[in-house]
Each structure stands twice: as C-alpha cells, then as structure tokens.
C-alpha cells in the first residue's frame, strides 16, 4: 500500500470538508477499497473514514419507504429489514461472508458500483433513490456504467430510500470463489408495477429488464416471461460464463425470483 493520512471525522460536515483535499478518498467499510489499496490500484493522499458519523447510521421505515443509512453494514441490513423488506434482507444476508457483512456498507457498495455487486439490482428494481449530502438521485440516473455513478467528487451517500414492495425476492447465481453473483436478479412487486433489476450480466452494469417488468405487471407468475428473450449482445463474457450463458441466466433467475417472492 502507498502511504496516506487517515482521518475519522465525527460529523458529515467535517467529512465533506476533509474530502475537499486533493486526492482524498472516502472509506466506508473498506471491504473493496482495502484490497484495492493493497494492490496499489489506488493512491489517495488521505482516507476519510465514514464509520464515525452518526448521521449515516440507522435503518427505518418511513410510511411506504425504507430508509437505510449509507453507513449501514450488510449485517445490519440483513437483520433489521427482515420483517419489512424480505428481498433486501435476503440479499444482504448473502453478501460475502459474516465478517465482510460486519464491516461492508450499503453506501460503500453503491458508491463503488461493481458490475456484479448485489445492491444495485435492488435499487434498480425498486426505482429507489440515493440521497447524498447535496441532493437526491433516482436509481436510473445514478448508475452510469461499470464502477461509474452520478456521484461528484467528495459527494457522500447519506441514505438510500427504497419504496417498499408488496412482494420481493433476490436470486443470485453465485460464482462460488468470490461469492459475487455471476448473475443476480431482484424482483419487486407493487400494486401497479413490477421492477426487475439485473446485476452481474451486462457490460454496462446493472439494468432494469423492462420487457419482463411489463409482462409481470400483467401476470405476476414465472410463466409470464416464458416468451421473452434476453439478447447476449452487450453481456459480459469471461472464464466463468459466456455472454449467451449470462443472458440465459437472466431469464432463469427472474423466474426463480418471481416464484419465490414473498
């Protein structure tokens, strides 16, 4: 690792200020950033830990919306959303392993926007909102491709808002070595619409499978997507699975998620 200064501000304002320094970088749980630093793939002058900021904590239902503080760990999300948002709780409970879940945060994961991260699928399916220290960003505007988001330099995710669905589920076809999804599909059913968020598959990162959303809005059953076809064009292809394989998995995981939704 290259050397850097470490700062742990106690308030959001202090963190925003610390991040104004050139090459300063925010540190959430560090479960991606620390391995990245070890490989010398990043060279921040200063790391600003967000762990000591009370404003970024807390998971609460506010009417028909679930608000998750950006600093919430996966473990906290898994435990505290269990009776409120089954799909999200299930998703969080399967990220990494228990020690990673005790440290990694939702804000950190969404800011990183790994093309195979789990949370983007939930945020996209629910058409949730990323709230930062300066503004609110809708899911469809937030994700802008691999490891790319609408966040500006020094902007901090303070919370994430998910419209609560009637039913939801997440199906992850796991790459067993990394435990990242090879393909992951989140399905969220509302009174008047259905959201389908797909992660791990596309070269452009997370996407909403809109044809399936329309078909499922009319008939929320696995068979509703039988006649749909996912193109392999633009799907990721690597030693774990070809583009065609991933395209196929999108449909299979969608059907499983619909069947399991609760």
């Amino acid at each position: 690792m290259y050397a850097f200064e470490f700062e742990r501000p106690g308030s959001l304002d202090a963190a925003v200020k610390a991040l104004q320094e050139e090459d300063a970088q925010a540190l959430g749980g560090g479960q991606t950033l620390i391995p990245t630093l070890k490989q010398r793939l990043a060279m921040p002058s200063k790391l600003v830990s967000l762990k000591g900021i009370a404003e970024l904590q807390g998971i609460a239902q506010e009417g028909d919306v679930l608000k998750v503080g950006g600093g919430s760990t996966h473990g906290a999300v898994a435990r505290e959303t269990k009776g409120i948002f089954a799909g999200l709780s299930l998703m969080a409970s399967k990220i990494g392993d228990p020690a990673v879940r005790n440290r990694g945060t939702m804000g950190g994961s969404l800011a990183n926007n790994d093309p195979a991260a789990c949370y983007p699928a939930a945020l996209m399916a629910t058409r949730g909102t990323v709230v930062t220290n300066t503004r609110e960003i809708a899911a469809e505007e937030y994700f802008q491709g691999l490891f790319t988001t609408a966040l500006e330099e020094g902007e901090i995710i303070t919370s994430i808002r998910f419209p609560l669905p009637e039913k939801s589920n997440y199906q992850k076809f796991e790459q067993p070595a990394s435990r990242f999804p090879l393909v992951g599909v989140f399905v969220a059913k509302y009174g008047d619409r259905v959201g389908v968020g797909v992660t791990g598959a596309s070269e452009d990162g997370v996407f909403a499978w809109k044809e399936a959303e329309e078909a499922l809005a009319g008939n929320f059953a696995p068979e509703a997507v039988d006649d749909l076809w996912v193109s392999a064009e633009g799907m990721m292809s690597d030693l774990h699975g070809t583009a065609e394989y991933r395209a196929h998995l999108v449909k299979v995981m969608t059907k499983r998620a619909v069947a399991a939704a609760e």
Partner: peptide
C-alpha cells in the same frame, strides 16, 4: 467477527 487484514 472482523477480518483483521481488512481494517486499519
């Protein structure tokens, strides 16, 4: 439980 190699 925390991995001591992944926390400063």
């Amino acid at each position: 439980a925390i991995k001591a190699c992944s926390i400063f």
